[in-house]
Design a protein around this nucleic acid. Structure first.
Lengths: 228, 228, 228, 228
DNA sequence: GATGAATGAGATTTCATTCAT
DNA sequence: AATGAATGAAATCTCATTCAT
């Protein structure tokens, strides 16, 4: 009898904290990406995570904290992915090209992360606006960095009239919007999309209408830029 | 004080329906833009509007309907502002330029409208997605017209590798995203934004890093980008 | 201009009070019968009546009063209908028969009245329980009266063990339940239903299983009791 | 006082779910029976149950579901009580008699259950109509069995003019209606009610007014109604 | 470590009713 | 006589959060 009472509950395995935290964060990212911050409920998160609510509160704090943890983790993942894709030893246009491809790749394979970061984190504001702005700034700055570094070699940075960050935001928006447009035009291959964007960004309409085209070159036999 | 005494009835003045509806919509746009759809409360909207909640429900329906009314009104306002800004008798690049100026002018003077349309309506999804898709579709068609007409003059239309509509989608996304970025960088004047985007779209990074710049000209019947 | 202002509203005809009251009561009975007292809304009643709500309040008072007016009017109608159907100069079984037919006839042609009286008035209770009980009692007493008067001739009234009212309630319930059953067995003609009930009530199972049957007789060449 | 001090926690004792569900259902039946479905408020139910509203929603669902749970529980209770009262080894009239006694016994001791089932569930209609139709159907089948078996012995089944099921429906309705009448005439003992109905059903008015009476006998293997 | 049980607070929505014209 | 305009009050339901075990 005493033994009976002391036997720990069978289905509640004692997992190390790190594992539980990952379960919870994964579930939270999924639920936040589906419903947004406000509509996501702690109940659903705990269900999806397979963990009771008190555990969430004990490990990751209240809803706000949990959301913060989510966006921090996903933002870091994205930054790392993009940084890993960039080769510093290639010409600026190829750097931009690689960055864009890495970015697209991340978004494609981590759609939920991207939705949380881009769609929802921006909207919430309020209690942790600063944090969000910071994170978002970092993300945009990364892409912006490419622009700036590309420009730096040629003196664009000195043209105070331009903001690398602003242009990066524009580029990201263009990429997104094109992705949306893609949903209704699935016959276009994905490499073509990236190529369009690169052409638009690199050459501009003016050159395009003149018949010019930008195409990725093999630079040293390594990966990347192999679309038709 | 004398004025105070002259007011016929301190509250419950019987105003015609149209007036109340405007009051309510104005308040709703403000509150939605501040807190987002979910966090905005009907209580706050009714307070700001100076009208009791039952009036809102009676005139504009439930929260969802109210939000829809807001989106539609603001979308129409924005489209009208942009369309009014475009002059059909100038070269394509100048048309695009005017459109962009009108767009950023609108965002500058109707910040709340833009926040509701772009930040919040997109996030909530569901019943509002169609409305936003519509709006964006109209914008894309508008820009697409310019792109195609610009390209037609130079034979771009024959380059099957490119889609005017796809490029327009990208351009619209870029404009939106830049407007969004602007919300957190209010020190930049609106004309500058339009100029950035115009340079990016028309010249491309390639030309920009070479130090070229696109600048609006006085209308003289010629087409733009005369430094290529 | 002065004439313009003074012209009475075109669609709000000045009808005499009695007409308006009838419109309102008719609408109220319909709406109450459809949704019950609590779910019926004054808005719907005013819509159906084609009369504005303030008129209802001015003519027939608040919701409770309105409901009272309804059940009073309908109860009186029913009582009158049943009383008119009964011939005092025929044998007791024929009196009961005529009463039942008159009652059925009323329910069939005034379904809404009956629903309000039987289904809804009973349920509400609360503020006007007494009034309702009274009215209901009157109605049941009428049928009960037939039973009692039939019994009086033969001494049933002296058997204190029986309550005419109680038996009447049972009869009404039987009639109703049979009517419900009828909905799923529409091939049975209505005269047969009344006949069953009469047989059950008059002869009882005991006689029925012995093969006896009660049938209405022509008593003096007048109407009634002519079913197959 | 000493007891007061000994109570471990004045509120929020963690009771197992089953206990709370019973508390809630009991309270709900009481409150629904008092005010009817629409006027009953979840607040009052939660007060009477001594449980907060969220528990109700979590355990038994929204108001509709709660009401359904009530109906189902009480209907089952009633059916079980009646079925338990019927002895299969006695003549049909005695079976009917026992069933009626059990029914009125149940109504007497579970007035609230009956009020909910008969007065309120019927009135509201909509999602509850099926449930009530079901209950009545079961009751009709039960009684129908008796009627048919009584008739079979005497050849009633061959009289195509009659339907055992139809008569059973009428009888069930009579029993219900009499029980309802009883609610306003509580001075009559329940055995008397059963006796009235039994006399009406078995002997019919015709015999009653002649002074005959049906009375239960000790079971002796013979069938009933021996004064016809 | 882990959770079922429990709730305060606040959201949306509806309705009977009255005022001003 | 007649009504559009207006609202206080209350109903249902949900959710983030914590306690007791």
């Amino acid at each position: 009898m005493a033994q009976d009472a002391q036997r720990p509950a069978e289905r509640a395995k004692r997992l190390p904290r790190a594992v539980r935290e990952k379960q919870i964060l994964d579930a939270a990212v999924r639920v936040f990406s589906l419903h947004g911050y406000h509509s996501a409920s702690m109940d659903e998160i705990s269900d999806v995570a397979g963990v009771s609510k008190p555990m969430i509160y004990s490990y990751l704090g209240a809803k706000e904290d949990l959301f913060l943890h989510c966006i921090r983790r996903e933002a870091n993942r994205m930054l790392e992915a993009v940084q890993a894709g960039i080769r510093p030893d290639v010409p600026p246009d190829m750097q931009l090209w690689h960055g864009l491809r890495a970015f697209y790749g991340f978004v494609a394979s981590h759609r939920e992360s991207w939705v949380v970061l881009h769609r929802h984190a921006i909207t919430v504001g309020g209690p942790f606006a600063d944090e969000i702005t910071d994170l978002r700034g970092k993300a945009i700055k990364l892409v912006g960095g490419l622009v700036v570094s590309a420009g730096a070699r040629k003196g664009l940075a000195e043209q105070v009239e331009f903001s690398g960050e602003g242009l990066a935001a524009a580029l990201v928006g263009a990429a997104e919007s094109l992705a949306d447009w893609w949903l209704d035009h699935t016959d276009v291959p994905d490499g073509v999309l990236a190529s369009w964007l690169m052409n638009l960004a690199w050459l501009g309409f003016n050159d395009l209408v003149e018949g010019q085209l930008w195409r990725p070159r093999e630079h040293d036999g390594e990966h990347g830029a192999d679309q038709a």
